[in-house]
Amino acid sequence: MPQIAQIADTLSGQVFWLLVFFGLTFALVGLGMVPKIMGTVDLRDQQIAGDLAAAQAARDAADSEEAAWRTRENANRSAAQGVIADAKAKAAAASAAKLAEAQSRLDAQLAEAEAGINAARTSALAEIEGVAADAARDIVARVAGTEVELAAAQAAVKEVMAHG
């Protein structure tokens, strides 16, 4: 085993050169380069963290903006709904008034017409009584050959008509 067989000859050289080359590597790489590389990594991590925070802030701002817009929009919409409801109510009231006026006019015409009809009926009934009394006097004159007083005939017709 050369590791043991040569130890007396090579120990000093092995230790010396290892210290030289490990020391060189440690000084150059370990102390010189590694901190810079880790600094770069840290810088990048910070940048990423900053960018993420900025993105989050922008997102929050956008969210609040949207919320504000939404409330404004809702207010506008409810205002518009109010205007529409007002207009509807006004239109309904106007049409109701017009309808009521027309109704009352129609009612008046109807009442007038009914009164006319009633008057016509009563005059017609009076005429029928007159005609019936005349016819009754004629029938009596022809059948019995006697003259009947107009008043009596009328009274008789009235009595019959009242009994139906």
Partner: peptide, 25 residues
């Protein structure tokens, strides 16, 4: 009496040191 001959072992240590330095650089 303290011999520090540049041996094949030292040579490979030197190569290792150079390669590590080159890799990190």
């Amino acid at each position: 009496g303290i011999n520090i001959a540049f041996t094949n072992s030292a040579l490979w240590m030197a190569i290792t040191a150079a390669l590590v330095t080159a890799f990190v650089a």
